[in-house]
Design a protein around this nucleic acid. Structure first.
Lengths: 227, 227
DNA sequence: GCAAAAGTGTTGGGCCTACACCCATGC
DNA sequence: GCATGGGTGTAGGCCCAACACTTTTGC
């Protein structure tokens, strides 16, 4: 008997903003089933493109977002996850600098696209809630062996941004001095001769940037980063 | 245009034997293309079964092996990985006690099934060499956060078996005393009132078994195990 | 008795944690 | 000048790595 399975890809894209926290990019479905529900962006793979290309294309079409950090998350294939027919979906995990995308150009299958704080998710279509949970799990565990900030923060950022990101993801406070010592000892941060602009009160901090080169070397040879 | 992609699963199954080291289970292809080549067991997913069921079924059919530890590894979907048509394959990663399977009942698509030491792999069909490399990578990294021995060793084993397994996977010697201290401190091993049978010279060691209950608890709440 | 493998403790050093006060800026 | 957030150093304790000799067995 002929196989009746369709192959899709989904993109769970995380962003970060120092006051709004960690958020995930969702679209509102334009068509049935579950029209009007929020869902993870994604769609069917075409015959000639790679899986990564399919993810990038769907993301582009549905939200206008282009991503540079993308990794495979997990493949979801339970027989009844879509009511219409058997759909197996390869989920990808992406990180972007939220600041680059405040508004979206939704199109094709999507009515609208929007960031949602990961603690305030709307009702989601299909098994998308489970998928996001797996993705959040991955994000949380990733901070232990990969200094994620590089993909989530602006090119230049005050040190406190990084600290807040970690505090948020860990869900507990961390010691500022110890954290800074540890991060700086990795040698992937460069301090700049520039101060952050003020956005309220308080002493402005120096700006930092990641040194992409040493960062990549470090990631390649494996890194442990316990807190 | 209609999607023309077929979905398959593959199973990379590892076994361990204290003199033969770590090995992977391969089959010899019975049909074209690449008839006679060695390959990873696997096959197409049927419409009603889950991905895990598909893996177990194919493995059963092609090698007679039934597995109890199985996790998803990665999904391979490059457009040209199979010369005939687009095939996307969800690869799974399994561990078995080699001692349980010295001979195999090959059937269906396979002429023959056999263990191969991971350092002496034959020429493999399709992109299966790459897939096995990813799997070995996963196996190696897994020993750092999960005491793998449970799935790979016999129910009762001398402590040196565990030590040899780690030495082999790490590719370097480890300090016996420190290793034992660390493993015992996890509280997942029980010492038995039994000595290993002799297989050559040397003093016989006590036998140990894993305490499945505390082991599972430990895995669940996360575990770091650096060496 | 000799070769092979198992069993067994201690110490020094490095790393990690805990901890509190001053500084720069905006209002 | 006060409120807000940024910046900075040290000491004690714990854990980890390094290290070698004795015991039991087969031959």
């Amino acid at each position: 008997m002929e196989q009746q399975i369709k192959l899709a890809v989904d993109a769970i894209v995380f962003g970060y903003h120092q006051t709004e926290g960690v958020s995930v990019l969702l679209i509102r479905r334009k068509y049935a089933p579950l029209k009007g529900y929020w869902a993870i962006p994604g769609g069917f793979v075409t015959n000639e493109e790679s899986l990564e290309q399919a993810v990038q294309r769907e993301l582009q079409e549905e939200t206008g977002v282009k991503i540079n950090y993308l990794e495979q998350l997990y493949t979801f294939g339970a027989p009844k996850r879509d009511p219409r027919q058997r759909i197996v979906s390869v989920a990808y995990f992406g990180l972007v600098k939220t600041s680059a995308y405040k508004t979206f150009q939704a199109a094709t299958d999507a009515d609208d696209a929007q960031w949602f704080n990961i603690d305030e998710l709307p009702k989601l279509a299909f098994d998308h809630k489970d998928i996001i949970e797996v993705a959040i799990e991955r994000l949380r565990s990733k901070i232990h062996y990969q200094p994620i900030g590089f993909e989530l923060l602006d090119r230049k950022f005050p040190f406190s941004d990084l600290e807040k990101l970690y505090t948020t993801l860990l869900g507990r406070p961390i010691d500022r001095r110890n954290f800074k010592k540890k991060v700086m000892s990795l040698g992937i941060l460069e301090e700049l001769d520039e101060k952050a602009k003020q956005s309220g009160a308080g002493r402005p901090g120096s700006l930092f940037k990641f040194n992409k080169k040493t960062y990549n070397q470090l990631v390649k040879k494996g890194l442990h980063f316990e807190l």
